[in-house]
Write a protein that binds this DNA or RNA. Structure first.
Lengths: 203, 203
DNA sequence: CAAGTTTCATAATGATCGGTATATAATCAC
DNA sequence: GTGATTATATACCGATCATTATGAAACTTG
């Protein structure tokens, strides 16, 4: 009994690489947002026709979710890695510098796909918005847990709580992404990061 | 020769109040963004028909600009007032608390119209986006100037520059607006503000 | 009253939106 | 070869987009 894993595909073979097409779709969503990206924008960038897109990815919303998965897997991996840093300050530094490096890249869109997908929008994008907000929430909860550890380890000043510090750092990261998306230079973003690190609270 | 100022209006009188209609339009743009707000959304909220809207405001883009003017005049006035505060720290406190009070209001949309209008978008909204970004830039330049004053007054730590501090505070305010727009509670926003003030750099 | 002017409501414009029906082309198993 | 299956390309679908043409209604002036 043969396993299905190596079964030869039936029918006409696909003429494009799904992963490459998805990467191109990600770039479009990243630079134009979910609503701003039309199917024409997407198919043009992906180099495929509309029926091919629908056959391979379902529909626009499903395509966005797959693109968002790819984005978080490839571009936001520094965020979960940062939590392994030894101190709360090191966590913050890794997050800020990671965001800076990503936003300062010249060959990729500016701004953060999560941030631009979580702002006000028309009705068609509300479920997308809700999902992105939920994903951010779980990221923030992980950050809060990490800062609670630091709190117990006595790293934080007495009057400072883990939730407040996480919301504070999250706001800085969101602002960094917004400013990058609005065209800030690398130097400006560096100044922002250095200032943030300079004021980071130590006990 | 009579002056035109007190001339009686000819023709059929307008049946709606332009200012009230503009205020309603602002609420729609504020909660849905420029692209997310359809003309049907707008005319429904304003209680007028499409031709009336075009006769009174020009077109969708001109209506948005007038709504943005109103927004900055009525909702963002605390920002310019904050610059009069005696110290850099007081400026920051007024800005953060002013943003908090505005975002915590229950009877108005959450988030900041400037922030949601400056993110990635489709082609039709690019000129809007550019204008909003330009307006924010001039606000930031005023903040930088105010912090340069503080720098000369010796208020800032030696290794800290006005531009970096302004970008830093601006990022916090942007993050605050984003989190408010994403549904953060007043308590969460308060914690964010208190943490920001607690870490504010003093010489 | 009638002429002139402006706003009103209705309905239509062409363009674009996301999504598909249809037919053809390329591969498989037999 | 034939039949089944899947991907391709073209063209189309109804819905919605911002904008406007049209004509009746409401007002001022003469």
């Amino acid at each position: 009994m043969k396993l299905a894993i190596c079964s030869a595909p039936k029918g006409r073979p696909r003429e494009f690489c799904v992963d490459e097409a998805l990467a191109q779709a990600l770039r479009v969503f990243w630079s134009k947002g979910y609503e701003g990206a039309s199917l024409t924008d997407l198919t043009d960038a992906m180099g495929i026709t509309r029926p091919s897109l629908y056959a391979a990815f379902g529909n626009k919303e499903a395509l966005f979710r797959k693109a968002l998965d790819l984005y978080e897997r490839e571009k936001l991996c520094y965020m979960s890695q940062a939590l392994d840093a030894p101190t709360a300050r090191d966590v913050a530094e890794r997050l800020l510098r990671g965001a800076l490096e990503m936003q300062a890249s010249d060959c990729e869109p500016r701004g953060c796909l999560r941030v631009i997908s979580s702002v006000a929008c028309g009705v068609e994008a509300e479920s997308i918005r809700d999902e992105v907000i939920a994903r951010r929430k779980s990221s923030m909860e992980a950050l809060i847990k990490r800062f609670e550890q630091a709190e117990e380890a006595g790293e934080l000043p007495d009057h400072m709580d883990a939730e407040g510090l996480a919301a504070y750092l999250g706001a800085l990261l969101q602002g960094l992404s917004l400013q990058a998306g609005a065209g800030a230079s690398r130097e400006e973003l560096e100044r922002l990061v250095e200032t943030s690190l300079a004021v980071w609270p130590t006990r």
